[in-house]
Computed example of a mutant assay.
Amino acid sequence: MTGLAGLLEAARRLHEATPSLRDFAPWPRDLRPVPKPPVPCPASALLAGLPARAPLLAETMAVADQLEWRRTYSADEVGQDFLNRYGYVELYGPCGHFHSAQSRGYIAFWDAGLDYGWHDHAAEERYFALHGSPLFLSRSQPKARLQPGETRSHASYEQHAMRTLDTPFFCYAIWRGAGLAELPRMSA
């Protein structure tokens, strides 16, 4: 498979082969393609510097210029440097390249040395690290440095933050539950 279908297939294979992802949310069965124009962001060009060992990362790199890259926050909230070195793609979900009302699946990238400040959202979340080892912080669980192949979960409205430290971070993230169509918000 090639293009966006190949990217979706790589995500499905990872999702279904990983018990911690499967158990968090089943692979959505209501997917339908939604045509979206490509929207570049500065961070998407930074993917080229990563080793494409994981199939999902390799597929993302192959179609990066076809994806609708997003950046939820404003420069006032996170700073222009953060915006230039961060981006995500909603692969599937209410606003994704593939529509689903069952869950939301993201592919996300943060460059090295970024501080993703305290934020929260209604949906429950699980990160799956594919590259990098960021430090995750939470107001309700111990801090942890995630390694490739590991997950980190956050409950609904759990305030959390992340620091990428010395390596870029590339991940697959899933949202489930209430608030699926809402975006995260920076916490006070």
Results as ranks from 00 to 15, higher is better:
residue 4 L to Y: 06
residue 11 A to P: 02
residue 12 R to G: 00
residue 13 R to K: 13
residue 13 R to I: 11
residue 14 L to S: 02
residue 20 S to T: 11
residue 23 D to E: 14
residue 25 A to L: 12
residue 26 P to K: 03
residue 28 P to Q: 07
residue 29 R to H: 08
residue 30 D to T: 02
residue 30 D to L: 06
residue 33 P to V: 10
residue 34 V to L: 15
residue 35 P to S: 09
residue 35 P to W: 09
residue 37 P to F: 01
residue 43 A to T: 09
residue 44 S to R: 15
residue 44 S to C: 15
residue 47 L to V: 07
residue 48 A to T: 11
residue 49 G to F: 05
residue 55 P to F: 07
residue 58 A to G: 02
residue 60 T to P: 04
residue 63 V to L: 07
residue 65 D to I: 00
residue 66 Q to P: 01
residue 71 R to G: 08
residue 72 T to D: 11
residue 74 S to H: 01
residue 75 A to P: 00
residue 76 D to Y: 03
residue 80 Q to W: 02
residue 81 D to K: 10
residue 83 L to V: 02
residue 85 R to T: 01
residue 86 Y to N: 07
residue 88 Y to M: 10
residue 88 Y to F: 15
residue 90 E to R: 11
residue 93 G to S: 09
residue 95 C to A: 14
residue 96 G to Y: 04
residue 97 H to C: 06
residue 97 H to T: 05
residue 99 H to D: 09
residue 102 Q to V: 07
residue 109 F to C: 01
residue 109 F to H: 11
residue 109 F to A: 08
residue 109 F to T: 02
residue 116 Y to M: 12
residue 117 G to D: 11
residue 120 D to W: 12
residue 131 H to A: 12
residue 132 G to V: 10
residue 132 G to T: 08
residue 133 S to H: 12
residue 134 P to A: 02
residue 136 F to V: 10
residue 138 S to F: 01
residue 140 S to A: 13
residue 147 Q to H: 08
residue 148 P to C: 04
residue 151 T to G: 12
residue 153 S to W: 01
residue 153 S to M: 13
residue 159 Q to M: 14
residue 160 H to Y: 13
residue 164 T to F: 08
residue 166 D to L: 10
residue 169 F to H: 14
residue 169 F to M: 03
residue 173 A to G: 06
residue 174 I to W: 02
residue 175 W to F: 13
residue 176 R to S: 12
residue 177 G to I: 07
residue 179 G to L: 04
residue 182 E to N: 14
residue 185 R to S: 13
residue 185 R to L: 06
residue 186 M to T: 07
